[in-house]
Design a protein around this nucleic acid. Sequence first.
DNA 1: AAACAGTACAACCGCCTCTGT
DNA 2: GACAGAGGCGGTTGTACTGTT
Length: 313
Amino acid sequence: MGRSPSSSSDNSLKKGPWTLEEDEKLIDYIQKHGKGSWQLLPKKAGLNRCGKSCRLRWTNYLRPDIKRGNFSPDEEQIIIDLHSLHGNRWSTIASHLPGRSDNEIKNFWNTNLRKKLLRSGIEPKTHRPISDLNLFFNLLPTSINPWENALEFHADQANQKIQVLQNILKVLSTSPLSNTGANCLGESYNLIQSGGCINGIDPLHLQELSYPLSPNLGSIESVPEPFGTIYMNSMETIPENLVNQTNGIRSTSNEEYSLPALVPATTETCTANLMNSINSMHIPNQTIASNCIETWGNLIDDSSSSLWKDIYH
DNA sequence: AAACAGTACAACCGCCTCTGT
DNA sequence: GACAGAGGCGGTTGTACTGTT
């Protein structure tokens, strides 16, 4: 493969920020003669720049159809979606956003979206949950960083415990998995205990994980397991054998699931809320196997279980 | 007001890919 | 098929700007 001589090899060529005069020369030349060869353009246009520099200046800044200014929420979502699909293929992403250059999108990703995803507990590279909790918590504001607020966090354990259960039940009640009734409860406990999520929601961290939704992530076959997470695109029940092989379930469905607002947790209100949640799941009582109830009872009682340790720590 | 930290973004660099010979 | 030139791409850097202490 051939390689163009580095633009840095000619020290007589100007580098750095473009002046207004240079911009005008470039615009004027291209308007009159078209782009043609970038290699020859600077000489013809009377610019002491390399062709690459001219091309970059034109495509990223000077071309008439360039759109400047803040990215709209729609554009943000498109970028996130496309990034989950194509990775750092900025030019490919830019081709879906008229008026935006690959450079601009790249900068916007690195300075905004990347951090936004990190703060949401999502690894920007993989668009999957951050598996390293230290990394995740380090990204949180210190006011909610459990490492730095250990005492306060500890005091809130009971409240969180109940809240997690509420979230789990809420998620289950809005999940297609709820069709599976008692098995769902039991399996979900196993899944959550292993660090999984239900329907894109991570009950352990009391937050909804919002995923860029890419059609090609829809099938179980097409997605390598990040840390034992299954992606599914159908509303069908997950086969029992498949569930047992994995740690988590995540849906790439477009549906938004909203978690219940955090509530003060007294024993009375929590019990009532839990019972309400269970009742709202439309699971026939007789289908809830006794071992499932026992599992959840043990879960609630056993503060030393690995699940609660995950939450507390 | 000054110093420092964080952010945004234009521009550069080096490698890769495409295309013509 | 091998080679060379040109353009394209993604990663990185430099710097201006803004916010915070």
